Amino acid sequence: MFREMRRKKQVLSLDESTAVLKAGTSGVLAVIGDEGYPYAVPLSYVYHDNRIFFHCAITGHKLDAIAENDKVSFCVIDRDTVVPEEYTTYFRSVITFGKARVLEDEKEKREAFEILAAKYSPSHKEGRLREIDRQFNQACLVELRIEHLSGKEAIELVTAKHRGSGK
Rank of each mutant, 00 (worst) to 15 (best):
K99G: 09
N69R: 03
K62Q: 13
V46E: 15
V72C: 08
V46A: 10
Y37E: 12
V94K: 02
A112S: 02
A112Q: 01
D105S: 13
T89A: 10
D80S: 12
F54E: 01
R92T: 14
K22G: 09
F113A: 07
P84C: 05
H48G: 08
I66G: 02
V72S: 01
K109T: 08
L43K: 12
I66H: 01
F91I: 03
I77P: 03
I95Y: 03
I58W: 09
R92A: 11
F53R: 01
C75L: 10
T89R: 05
A30P: 06
E108T: 00
R51T: 14
R110I: 01
L29D: 01
F54C: 07
A57G: 15
K22I: 09
A23Y: 03
L21S: 04
I32Y: 07
I52T: 05
K107Q: 15
N50F: 10
K62D: 09
F74L: 11
V46N: 13
L116R: 08
I66Q: 02
H55R: 10
L43H: 07
R101M: 10
D80H: 11
V82Q: 08
N69E: 06
K119S: 10
T89D: 09
G98E: 02
E86S: 15
F54Q: 02
L103W: 04
K119N: 14
S93M: 04
Y90K: 11
E85Y: 12
D80Q: 08
A117W: 05
D78L: 01
